[in-house]
Design a protein around this nucleic acid. Structure first.
Lengths: 228, 228
DNA sequence: TCAAAAGTGTTAAGTTTACACCCATGA
DNA sequence: TCATGGGTGTAAACTTAACACTTTTGA
C-alpha cells in the first residue's frame, strides 16, 4: 500500500539522516564505534556511522538498518537521542538528522564488516574531534544513556549473556564515571529480582573464580508490575 | 549563503512536520491547546498544532514559528519530545514529524489568533481522541515534562510573572498528578535560592492575602554553579 | 463571628553511604 | 605461601515524609 494523498505539496522536502552512537564495553572501558571516513563528504575525518531514511521504512527501522549495516547485529537495544536540524549543520547539503544510541555486546558484532567500514572502537574519554554536530550528539546520547541506566537495567545489553558481578560493577562505574562501593552495589543487585546466578563459574578473571549471573528479563517485567 | 554541494542526491526526501504540545495552567488544571481541525486532512477531528519545516529555517526555529503562529508568543520555553517517523503515520502523505512541547503563560497568548485557528484549551485528563500518533506524542511530552520539572525549575513558564506559593504548589500538584504537603513544599522552595518574595500581596485568592513571589533566573544560575 | 486560605517546625521513617575483613585458588 | 580478586553485614549520616495549629480578614 503506497501513498494515498498528498496534501502537503507546497512544502519543501528534506534528506533525513540517521546517526548512530554505538556504545560498547571494551577492556573495562566505555567505548564508541567511530568511522575514519574513507568517503566524501569530510573524507579523512572521524564521524558517527550514518545513513539516510528511505521511502519504505520508518525512521526507527532506518536506524536499525544503519546499525546492522556496520555491525551485522539485529535486535539491538536502541533509543532515539533527538533530531538535529540546523540549516547548515552538514556542509554537504541540507540534512535533518535523527540520532540514536545503541548498546551492543562487544563479543557479538561482525568484525569483518567493521573493518570494511574503516570503523574503530574509541574510549569514550578519548574521542577524536568529530564532523558536523556529531560531538553534540555523542554528549546528549551519553547523558540520556546514563539517565536511562540509572532508571532501568539496560546495562546488560553491553555485556555478554553471562557476566560476573565485578564485570557488572565495572560497567556501571564507567557509565556513571565514578567508583561504586562493592557491598552497596551487590546489595542493590540482590534487591532487584532480575539478576540470577547461573551456577557457572568464571575462572578467567581470578584464581578463585567468580559466579556467573544472567539478566532475567521476564523476572524484571514481573517486578515492574508492582511499581504502579 | 545557500547550499554548496549535494552529495546525497540518490536518497529520497521527506516532508518534515512539526507538532506542538502546548501546555498551559488554566483554572488550576494542566491543559493542552488543541485544534478542532477546520481544514484537511482529518477535518473535524482534534489534533495538535502543526506545520512544516521550511528550507531556510532550523527544525527548532520551525517549532518556534509554528507555536508563534497559533499563540503569538515568542521566547517560549520549548523542548524537543522526539521524532515520529512511521511510514503510514499520516494518511495524507509521508511525513516525518518532530514533536516539541511548550510551556506558556496562560495570561499572555493571543486569544484572537487562537480563536481563528479554532483551538481550545482542554484539561489534560480529558483530552479527546487525537489524529494520527498525536496521543503518543502527548503522552511522551507529559512524561518528559514531568521529569524535567522534577529536575529543574521550568514550572514558572506556566505561571504569570508574579505568583503565590499556593498557586505554585497547585501547579506542581497537577504536573505530578498527586497532592503535595504544604510545609514540605514550602521548605523545599525556601531551600532553593531562586524564588524571591516581591513584597506585593495578592488579595484575589484569599481574604487574608498571600505574598507574591517571582522566579529569579540569575539567582538560579548562580546556585547551579556549585553543583559540580 | 466565622469561613477560607496563608503561614509556620518537629519528629519518625526510610534511604543512602561509609567502612574492613575472610575466602579460595593458581602461580 | 602469598598475591589476587571474590564475597559478605552493620552502624552513622542524611533525606524524605508525616503531621496540626494559629493568623488574617472580608463577607
Amino acid at each position: 500500500m503506497g501513498r494515498t494523498n498528498d496534501y502537503y505539496g507546497a512544502n519543501p522536502r528534506f534528506y533525513v539522516g540517521i546517526d548512530c552512537i554505538i556504545f560498547g564495553f571494551l577492556k573495562g572501558e566505555l567505548s564508541l564505534l567511530l568511522l575514519k571516513r574513507d568517503f566524501e563528504p569530510a573524507q579523512g575525518q572521524w564521524s558517527l556511522m550514518g545513513g539516510f531514511v528511505q521511502e519504505n521504512e520508518s525512521v526507527d527501522n532506518a536506524a536499525k538498518r544503519v546499525l546492522a549495516e556496520l555491525t551485522g547485529l539485529n535486535n539491538v537495544y536502541m533509543e532515539q537521542v533527538g533530531t538535529f536540524g540546523n540549516v547548515h549543520r552538514d556542509p554537504g547539503g541540507r540534512v535533518i538528522s535523527v540520532a540514536y544510541y545503541a548498546l551492543i555486546d562487544i563479543d557479538e558484532y561482525n568484525r569483518e564488516s567493521v573493518r570494511q567500514h574503516n570503523a574503530y572502537w574509541m574510549n569514550i574519554n578519548e574521542v577524536p574531534p568529530l564532523i558536523f554536530d556529531h560531538a553534540e550528539m555523542v554528549g546528549k546520547a551519553r547523558t540520556l544513556m546514563r539517565q536511562k541506566a540509572a532508571a532501568e537495567p539496560i546495562g546488560f545489553n553491553l555485556l555478554p549473556k553471562f557476566f560476573t558481578l565485578s564485570q557488572l560493577q565495572n560497567l556501571y562505574e564507567v557509565i556513571y564515571g565514578e567508583p561504586l562501593d562493592k557491598r552497596n552495589f551487590r546489595k542493590r543487585i540482590a534487591e532487584m529480582n532480575c539478576i540470577e546466578k547461573t551456577g557457572m563459574i568464571d575462572k578467567t578473571g581470578s584464581k578463585r573464580g567468580a559466579a556467573l549471573y544472567q539478566f532475567n528479563e521476564k523476572a524484571y517485567k514481573e517486578s515492574q508490575k508492582f511499581k504502579l
